[in-house]
């Protein structure tokens, strides 16, 4: 297998690792965005909380999520190592004047990536840690099944615990459903009531936007996919979808919740 380690430790091989892990993270970004759209629902967090239970109990998704953590670490470590090697290649004496003919994002991928990594750590401390290891209260929702309407909600006492994250039951007539579920949504609302946290999330999303505006296209170039037939499309998707649309929707989430709570 020496050819494989040789390949992966070459400059192009290290870039291949960046490209493949990066593209995997891009697919995660879409799933994460679509799932998190539940925060825009006006159902006091029922859909969001049910979705959270699904994402943290489904064995397939649990397996993928461990792969995802590994990919994030691999992307970060390989990226920082490349940044170190690349910086070293310039030598101890740099240019006095350096008017580089390239985009700002393309020159600052390592800095943007570092901001993103810090963002991910804070983001996981805010929600992933408290959901899995912290104290998240339960909430009871009663839903009218004939109309699909939320009848009432009740925050369970602090010390209320279930053996599972969610329990559902029907009433005798089968017209209403009671759901008792771990209320991560209350965490989301509480976290985004702090304007400083909202600003930090906007900073993270801005870093994401610039990182993607260069990174998406760059990954395809690194794996050798460059052709007049499809490269403009790849660059367009990288800029408009991953660089603008997805970050804007992500940015809207903390902003929307902040103002909805403040109103």
């Amino acid at each position: 297998m020496s050819w494989l380690t040789q390949t992966l430790s070459s400059s192009i091989g290290k870039k291949l690792v960046m490209a493949l892990t990066g593209l995997f993270l891009c697919t995660f970004l879409i799933v994460h965005l679509v799932g998190n759209l539940q925060v825009f629902k006006s159902d006091e967090g029922l859909a969001f909380n049910s979705y959270t239970v699904f994402m943290t109990t489904n064995p397939f998704i649990k397996t993928i999520s461990w792969g995802l953590y590994a990919m994030i670490l691999l992307h970060a470590i390989d990226g920082l190592y490349l940044a170190y090697v690349n910086r070293r290649a310039r030598g101890s004496v740099g240019y006095k004047r350096f008017d580089n003919q390239s985009s700002w994002a393309s020159r600052n991928m390592a800095i943007l990536g570092t901001v993103l990594f810090l963002f991910i750590v804070v983001h996981m401390a805010n929600f992933w840690y408290s959901y899995n290891f912290g104290e998240v209260p339960y909430k009871r929702y009663t839903v009218d099944l004939t109309e699909g309407r939320l009848l009432n909600t009740e925050v369970m006492p602090e010390d209320y615990r279930l053996s599972t994250k969610m329990e559902q039951s029907l009433n005798e007539e089968g017209t209403a459903k009671t759901v008792i579920v771990k209320d991560l949504f209350s965490r989301v609302e509480r976290t985004f009531s702090n304007p400083l946290v909202v600003l930090f999330y906007l900073l993270g999303v801005a870093a994401l936007a610039y990182h993607m505006a260069h990174g998406f296209w760059s990954a395809f170039q690194t794996v050798g996919l460059n052709h007049p037939k499809y490269t403009p499309l790849i660059q367009g998707i990288g800029l408009w979808i991953f660089g603008i649309l997805i970050p804007v929707i992500f940015a809207a989430m903390p902003v929307y919740i902040f103002f909805r709570n403040a109103m």
Partner: peptide, 13 residues
Amino acid sequence: DSEGFGACSNTGA
């Protein structure tokens, strides 16, 4: 690689 050049990051400069 052995000459000590850096890796390409597709900046296009």
